Deep mutational scan, measured.
Amino acid sequence: MQRVNMIMAESPGLITICLLGYLLSAECTVFLDHENANKILNRPKRYNSGKLEEFVQGNLERECMEEKCSFEEAREVFENTERTTEFWKQYVDGDQCESNPCLNGGSCKDDINSYECWCPFGFEGKNCELDVTCNIKNGRCEQFCKNSADNKVVCSCTEGYRLAENQKSCEPAVPFPCGRVSVSQTSKLTRAETVFPDVDYVNSTEAETILDNITQSTQSFNDFTRVVGGEDAKPGQFPWQVVLNGKVDAFCGGSIVNEKWIVTAAHCVETGVKITVVAGEHNIEETEHTEQKRNVIRIIPHHNYNAAINKYNHDIALLELDEPLVLNSYVTPICIADKEYTNIFLKFGSGYVSGWGRVFHKGRSALVLQYLRVPLVDRATCLRSTKFTIYNNMFCAGFHEGGRDSCQGDSGGPHVTEVEGTSFLTGIISWGEECAMKGKYGIYTKVSRYVNWIKEKTKLT
């Protein structure tokens, strides 16, 4: 034993070699072989497995989906700052455009905790909710729209109204504003409101030439003092309507412009014939205590009207009353817009006519005020429907199939267009061939041609 100890002390290297040989010859039971080890760690190889990531292109799944990435790591994937920024906006807080917040056709661009709407022409605001041009839906104005110097929408209202708090709607500024039905039992019968379409306001006024200088022999019209197929109006439903009495009662109609003036057809009036105007009328054979009678003290036909040349060209006249009318729910003026808007309103496509005229061709006159909704007829169809001249200051309205029309005794009465609950004068009943005849239409004086003249002559002093 002493000898062994001496050998170990003198030859430590020998001992180490012996131990190493023993270990190498022993069977290893701690580690699995290569094949079995792979069965336990069965993990798919990654895209760049075996390579240094710093030297390969980034992978979106590896960089940002398996674990949260930084902007720089995302930049490695896209290799483009702009594309990385677009991805980053949604990656950080989701897609803010998912709810489609942009209105009126706006395009949404996502941002971090926010979004941006790219608005089409005519709109602005956070969600493109603000109209900035009158060309689109009248700028959301209830009545009139004008573009300011910086191309912003400025709404306005006709006389007797003021802008509401929203700067879009119009509200009454006087007790009985024009064009409004205020009798409670008839307010439910107000005709369907007309909503502004998209309009090209630059070209809204037709490029028409008034044929002022045409000389033409007097034409022989049949029954051209021209509501057939209409309905009984309720008291106060058309408070701007008046009836004219002269040699015979209810020979023509008219509309209240203001307390002192009536507008009617020029062919209705004769110099030297006494005319009485009755406002607030409903049943011409009954006294309903809503009527107001006034005498006409002055007749002003349009300066281009000449019955000797043509009885229905420039067929418009103004009547001055001896005493002002007292405005109330049964006696209310009709609204008159400017030339541009009167023309736009007419193009809405349908209007209402009213009167006490004959209820059928050569038949009896109506006792109760009649009204009828009539569609506008395109000019080409209008011209083809008659052998008589249709001037540019006239328009056609009615039904091709016949059966409904204005008729004798309705002449001078109103053709009105309702705009968001307020009625505007767009025409004056003038003439036609018979009444409600198939293929024939009622012919009306186009008020847009005469609004400046009306307003100039009827100013209240």
Rank of each mutant, 00 (worst) to 15 (best):
2 Q>E: 08
2 Q>R: 15
2 Q>K: 09
8 M>L: 10
9 A>F: 15
12 P>G: 14
14 L>R: 03
17 I>Y: 13
21 G>P: 04
24 L>P: 02
24 L>C: 09
27 E>I: 01
30 V>T: 15
35 E>W: 06
36 N>L: 06
40 I>C: 05
42 N>K: 09
45 K>V: 10
46 R>A: 15
46 R>D: 07
47 Y>V: 14
48 N>A: 15
50 G>I: 09
51 K>V: 13
51 K>W: 04
56 V>K: 05
57 Q>M: 08
58 G>C: 07
71 F>E: 15
72 E>L: 14
73 E>S: 08
78 F>N: 15
82 E>P: 11
87 F>Y: 15
87 F>H: 15
88 W>C: 04
88 W>F: 14
94 G>Y: 05
94 G>F: 04
94 G>A: 11
95 D>L: 11
99 S>P: 07
106 G>W: 02
108 C>R: 02
112 I>R: 15
113 N>M: 09
116 E>C: 06
121 F>S: 14
121 F>H: 14
123 F>S: 05
126 K>S: 13
128 C>P: 02
133 T>C: 04
137 K>L: 10
144 F>V: 01
146 K>W: 09
147 N>A: 14
150 D>V: 08
151 N>W: 06
153 V>W: 13
156 S>Q: 11
156 S>I: 04
161 Y>K: 00
163 L>T: 05
165 E>V: 11
168 K>I: 14
173 A>Y: 11
177 P>T: 03
178 C>Y: 00
180 R>H: 08
186 T>N: 10
200 D>H: 07
208 E>D: 14
213 N>I: 07
216 Q>V: 12
218 T>D: 09
218 T>G: 08
221 F>P: 13
224 F>V: 10
228 V>R: 11
228 V>D: 08
233 A>T: 07
236 G>K: 06
240 W>H: 01
243 V>I: 11
245 N>T: 04
246 G>Q: 04
248 V>P: 02
249 D>G: 02
250 A>W: 06
254 G>C: 00
255 S>N: 03
256 I>V: 06
258 N>D: 03
258 N>T: 05
260 K>N: 06
261 W>I: 02
265 A>V: 03
266 A>M: 03
273 V>S: 03
274 K>H: 03
274 K>Y: 02
284 I>E: 05
284 I>W: 09
284 I>M: 08
289 H>P: 12
294 R>C: 01
297 I>D: 02
297 I>G: 02
307 A>S: 11
307 A>Y: 09
309 I>W: 08
309 I>R: 10
310 N>A: 11
310 N>G: 07
315 D>S: 03
316 I>S: 01
316 I>D: 00
316 I>N: 00
321 L>T: 02
328 N>D: 10
329 S>N: 15
331 V>T: 06
331 V>H: 00
350 S>A: 13
351 G>W: 01
353 V>E: 01
354 S>V: 14
356 W>F: 07
358 R>Q: 12
358 R>W: 07
363 G>D: 08
365 S>G: 06
368 V>A: 11
371 Y>F: 15
377 V>Y: 02
380 A>P: 12
383 L>I: 10
386 T>A: 11
387 K>L: 06
391 Y>K: 14
395 F>E: 00
407 C>F: 09
413 G>P: 02
414 P>Y: 07
416 V>W: 09
418 E>Q: 11
422 T>S: 05
422 T>V: 08
424 F>A: 01
427 G>F: 00
428 I>V: 10
439 G>V: 03
439 G>T: 10
440 K>M: 05
443 I>V: 08
446 K>A: 08
448 S>G: 08
456 E>R: 07
458 T>M: 04
460 L>I: 08
